[in-house]
Design a protein around this nucleic acid. Structure first.
Length: 161
DNA sequence: GCCAACGTTGGC
DNA sequence: GCCAACGTTGGC
């Protein structure tokens, strides 16, 4: 089981929208590295931290898990009306994949970027590294657990280790 | 709105 | 294959 951080601008898709939807296809990723995480490494049951970027404040706003096996193709690549339409993609040879992620918890208080930076235990966290623009980042189990603790999360995702 | 950091594109 | 130009991300 692996752990991930996924970024979204709340104006586009917020943790509250996710809560209402209960689950969502993580479409619109057009970066190869982020795509490869979804298509190759993310597995059903993996833990997901939902991160609000370009937000007030930016930070980790909720928690969920991967609810598909990562083999889905992103339907927006075929949709000419979509901002994410890719003319090079065909249904036989899709270019962009995605995963489905299910909501588990919206944190009562966002764990802000400032809070994350202030925690000396989180030195390895990708989102704190300078120039990190990747929208999907792996998170170590230790950091995942620490962020859940900081959020006062009531969801026990890690358990069996 | 600014701008640093990074990814992608395309000419050569 | 190099690299300049351009576009995007995202904190501030």
């Amino acid at each position: 089981m692996n752990y991930w951080l996924m970024k979204s601008e709340p104006e586009t898709y917020s943790v509250e929208a996710w809560r209402k939807d209960k689950k969502t296809l993580w479409t619109g990723v057009r970066n190869y590295q982020a795509r490869n995480f979804m298509t190759q490494e993310m597995k059903q049951g993996d833990g997901v931290l939902f991160y609000h970027s370009n937000a007030e404040p930016s930070g980790v706003a909720g928690l969920g898990r991967v609810s598909s096996d990562g083999s889905e193709s992103d339907p927006t690549q075929f949709d000419k009306k979509s901002d994410f339409y890719d003319p090079k993609a065909t249904r036989d040879k899709p270019i962009w994949g995605c995963v489905e992620v299910s909501w588990l918890e919206s944190f009562a208080r966002v764990v802000s970027l400032q809070d994350l930076r202030a925690n000396p235990k989180l030195t390895e966290l990708g989102v704190l590294k300078k120039g990190s623009r990747l929208s999907i980042l792996p998170v170590t189990p230790k950091d995942f657990k620490e962020i859940c603790r900081m959020a006062g999360s009531k969801t026990e995702l890690l358990a069996k280790t």
